[in-house]
């Protein structure tokens, strides 16, 4: 079985277990305090870490396009539009630089 199938089946199962876990543990999960603050911050930190990881490998073109994407995303909150902006910006900058 390919890595793709293993990943999507494994992640599907893991996601379901997490979702069921939240229901089962509902009364016992701390709603405030350190643990809750950490849990709420985790998604943002993970994406921030990933963007950093991608950007340390990038050059001027990638950084310039990244700033444009950030501005468009902050204004529009539209993921497809932001993605297309980034693709077009990179394509154009690569022609110029």
């Amino acid at each position: 079985m390919s890595d793709i199938w293993i990943t999507l089946l494994g992640l599907g199962l893991a996601s379901f277990v997490i979702r069921l876990g939240g229901f089962l543990l509902a009364g016992r999960l701390p709603q405030t305090g350190r643990w809750a603050r950490g849990m709420e911050a985790l998604p943002g930190c993970l994406i921030m870490a990933l963007v950093t990881l991608m950007m340390v490998r990038g050059g001027v073109v990638e950084w310039a396009a990244g700033v444009m994407v950030l501005l468009v995303a902050a204004k529009s909150r539209n993921l497809l539009l932001s993605m297309l902006t980034g693709m077009i910006a990179v394509a154009l900058l690569r022609l110029v630089l």
Binding site: G44, I47, M48, L50, V51, M54, M55, G58, E62, A65, G66, V69, L70, V72, A73, A74, R77, L79, S82, M83, T85, G86, M87, V90
Partner: peptide, 13 residues
């Protein structure tokens, strides 16, 4: 670059 752009675009939200 599309996948990088998508992750960058997730940050403001």
């Amino acid at each position: 670059y599309a996948i990088i752009a998508v992750f960058v675009a997730l940050l403001p939200g």
